[in-house]
Design a binder for these strands. Structure first.
Lengths: 187, 187
DNA sequence: CCATTGTTTGAATGACTGTTCAAAAAACAG
DNA sequence: CTGTTTTTTGAACAGTCATTCAAACAATGG
C-alpha cells in the first residue's frame, strides 16, 4: 500500500469530535485508532505525536469556526443581524443531547495550568475571534464602542456556551442574551 | 500510629487545589500523595477511591462557594451591592498568575461527555447557585424579573470566569459586566 | 523485473495508571 | 503486660498509557 488509504482531513474530523467530547488527557491513542480506523503506527507516521495531532485538530476547528463567522456576516444584511444569527446557532447547538460546548474553551480550561502550548494556541484563537468581531462592529459603531461591544459579546458567548449545558435552557438563553445585548436590536 | 496524623479537611484543601488546577484525569494518585503527604494506602483507607475523593473535594469547594455568597449578602447593604462585590471579587481572582477559573465549571466541562455522576453533581451545584441568586433577587424584584436577572447574572459570571483567562483583562471585565448588567446600579 | 520509495502493520517497550493488601506500628482497654 | 483496634506503610498487581520499530506490503520509476 504505497498510497495512503485515508484522507488527512477525514482523520482530523474524526479526531476533532473525539478530542472535543473527551478532552486531551481522556482521549487515548487506542480510542483514536478506533475512531479513525488507523493503527498506532500510521497515526505516528502521519502526525508526529498525540500533542501534534491535537494541535492540528484544534487548528482545523478554529479555522472552521472563524470561517463560519465570516460566512454568516457575508450572508446577512448587517452586522447586528449576523451576530444575532450566530447566537441563535449557539442556542440551537446547545439543544443537542451530546452537546459539548466549544472545543477552544474546553482546551483552554483543561490545559491552562501547565502553560501548555496547546493552551496558548486556544487562547490566541479566542482573542483572534474577539478581534474579528471588533472589526465587524467597527463598521457600525465607533472604534471605542466596537471594542466594548465585542468584549460584551465574547463574554456573553462564553456564558452561553456554559449555560447551554443545562437541560432545556434554550429559551432562557435566548431571552438572556437579548436582554444582555440590547444594542443587537438597533438598526 | 493508631491516631491518624492528618486532618481530613486539610487533605481535602490540598486535593482541591490539585484537582482544580489540573482536572480529574490529569491528577494522578502519585501527585495526590505528593500534595497531601499521605501514602496511597492511607488515601484509600480514608477515601474509598479517586472518584470519591474528587467528589468530596468538589462538594467542599461548592459548600465554600455558596457560603461565600451568603456571607457577602449578609455583609452588604442590599442585594445589588452584594452581587457587585461578588463580581468584583471574581475580577480580582482573575488577576492571579495561577488563575484557574471555577472548579465547578471546569468539572462540568471535563466530565460532561461521560454522563459522569461528578458532572451531574457539578451541574446541580451550579443550578443551585442560580436558585440562590434568584431568591436574593426576589427580595428586590418581582419573581419573574428575579428569575430573568439571575439567569443573566449566571451567564455573565460564566462569561467572566472564562474571559478572565485572558491576560490583563481585569479592567475590560469590570466595564463589561457593568454594561451588561445595568440594573446592578439601581437603588 | 528489479530497486526504490512510501505506507501499514501490530507486537513490544518502559513508564505510569488506580487499587489492593499483608505486614508493621502505634494507641487504647482490660 | 496482653489483646484488640486503628492507622500507616510500601511493595505488588494487573491494566493502560504514549510511543517505537523492524518487518511486510504495495506502488512507482527505470
Amino acid at each position: 500500500m504505497a498510497k495512503k488509504n485515508y484522507q488527512r482531513e477525514d482523520v482530523l474530523d474524526n479526531v476533532i469530535s473525539l478530542f472535543w467530547q473527551q478532552g486531551y488527557a481522556a482521549s487515548s491513542i487506542q480510542q483514536i485508532t478506533k475512531a479513525t480506523g488507523l493503527k498506532p503506527g500510521s497515526i505516528y507516521h502521519e502526525f508526529e505525536s498525540k500533542e501534534k495531532l491535537f494541535q492540528e485538530a484544534l487548528a482545523r476547528y478554529a479555522t472552521a469556526s472563524i470561517g463560519a463567522i465570516h460566512k454568516k456576516m457575508a450572508d446577512t444584511e448587517n452586522v447586528n443581524e449576523g451576530i444575532k444569527q450566530i447566537l441563535a446557532d449557539l442556542v440551537e447547538q446547545s439543544k443537542a443531547c451530546d452537546y459539548c460546548g466549544c472545543f477552544l474553551i474546553k482546551t483552554q480550561l483543561e490545559l491552562a495550568s501547565q502553560g501548555n502550548s496547546l493552551y496558548q494556541f486556544a487562547s490566541m484563537q479566542l482573542s483572534n475571534i474577539e478581534k474579528i468581531y471588533t472589526e465587524y462592529l467597527s463598521r457600525v459603531y465607533s472604534d471605542e464602542l466596537a471594542k466594548a461591544y465585542a468584549a460584551q459579546l465574547m463574554t456573553v458567548i462564553f456564558g452561553i456556551r456554559i449555560y447551554g449545558y443545562q437541560a432545556d435552557s434554550a429559551n432562557t438563553i435566548t431571552q438572556t442574551f437579548n436582554a444582555l445585548l440590547p444594542w443587537l436590536n438597533e438598526h
